[in-house]
Amino acid sequence: DTKAKPAPDLIGRDFHAERPGIRLAGDITCLPTAGGWLYLACRLDLATREVVGYAMADHHRAELVTDALGMAHGRAHVEPGCVIHSDRGSEYTSARFRDRI
Rank of each mutant, 00 (worst) to 15 (best):
C42D: 06
D58N: 15
V52L: 02
A7L: 05
W37L: 12
V52I: 04
G53Y: 02
Y39M: 11
A68W: 09
E63R: 13
H60S: 03
V78N: 01
T48P: 02
A17I: 11
G35T: 09
G36Y: 11
E79A: 15
R13H: 15
G89Y: 06
H77W: 12
D9F: 05
D14M: 04
D27A: 06
E18P: 10
D99K: 06
V78E: 01
F97V: 03
A95L: 05
D67F: 00
G74V: 00
L44N: 04
H59N: 15
R98F: 01
A62I: 07
S90Q: 03
E50F: 07
A41H: 08
R100T: 06
G81M: 07
P32N: 09
G74P: 00
A55N: 07
A7R: 08
C82D: 12
R61S: 00
S86G: 07
T2Y: 07
H16P: 00
L10A: 08
C30N: 01
H73E: 11
H60M: 15
L40H: 06
K5C: 07
D9A: 10
H60I: 04
R23I: 08
R61P: 00
G35E: 15
R19L: 02
A47E: 04
Y92R: 01
D27H: 10
E18Q: 13
R13A: 14
P8W: 00
D58Q: 12
M56C: 08
R13G: 11
T2N: 14
L38F: 08
E63M: 09
G53P: 06
D87E: 09
D9K: 07
P20E: 08
G74H: 03
S90L: 09
S90H: 00
A4P: 08
E79H: 15
G36Q: 04
A55Q: 06
E79V: 14
S90C: 11
A68L: 10
W37K: 15
A57K: 14
S86Y: 07
D67Y: 00
G53F: 03
R96W: 00
R75Q: 15
M56W: 00
D27M: 09
G26L: 14
D14A: 09
G21V: 03
A72K: 05
K5A: 13
G89K: 06
I84T: 01
R98L: 04
S94C: 07
R96D: 07
G36A: 06
L40K: 02
D14S: 09
A17H: 09
V83R: 13
V78Q: 01
M71H: 03
P8A: 11
H85W: 10
C82G: 06
I101G: 10
G74S: 10
A7W: 02
H59F: 11
R43A: 09
